[in-house]
């Protein structure tokens, strides 16, 4: 990569790495794994930077690349996660004992990767149903169904209220 393009990419990466890392945190639930994911994503963006820098929305492309890389779990070196549609869901947590309640990240981590991605795209990145469908390469109807299911599961894990769920990452 020539000097100008290299500097151009570094500037882009500096500006976006924080937000990419936040998204990665929500997806992975762990700071180290999130960094690995962002590192892998930056590598892909760097390889294709000649083309990406001229795109209409390189930032959106970067986040899409992050999400798709996350779904390709095999590429994460330190990830011990195994994709599974069925997770042993604990009984719903009720009551006001905050110490016993799962954090939001712990709750997200108990969802399947596909369910987690839909919630992060829809509620963290505020993408529309159609945009989410494009990223995941599924139909908008499937996005709505998956989002509803994921919300139901998350609510069952965290209880009805989303306050004081602690912080992580």
């Amino acid at each position: 990569m020539t000097g100008d393009r290299g500097a151009d990419f570094e500037e882009f990466a500096q500006a976006r790495s924080g937000q990419l890392l936040r998204t990665a945190c929500l997806l992975t639930g762990d700071w180290h794994t999130a960094e690995d994911l962002v590192q892998e994503t930056l590598g892909k963006l760097f390889r294709g930077w000649r083309r990406i820098r001229h795109m209409e929305a390189p930032v959106a492309y970067a986040h899409t690349t992050l999400v798709r890389t996350f779904l390709s779990v095999r590429r994460l070196k330190r990830s011990s996660e195994r994709p599974s549609e069925v997770l042993p869901e604990p009984p719903p947590v009720v009551g006001a004992d905050i110490e016993l309640r799962l954090t939001l990240l712990q709750g997200l981590a108990r969802l399947s990767p596909a369910d987690r991605v839909v919630l992060v795209l829809r509620y963290w990145e505020d993408r529309s149903v159609e945009e989410t469908a494009e990223v995941l390469r599924i139909s908008p109807v499937a996005v709505r169904v998956r989002a509803k299911r994921a919300l139901d599961r998350l609510r069952a894990l965290l209880g009805a209220e989303l306050v004081d769920l602690g912080m992580a990452c």
Binding site: S17, L21, L42, G43, L45, F46
Partner: peptide, 10 residues
Amino acid sequence: LIERGIRRGR
């Protein structure tokens, strides 16, 4: 992190 990402891309 960015330097590691670039190295990974290369």
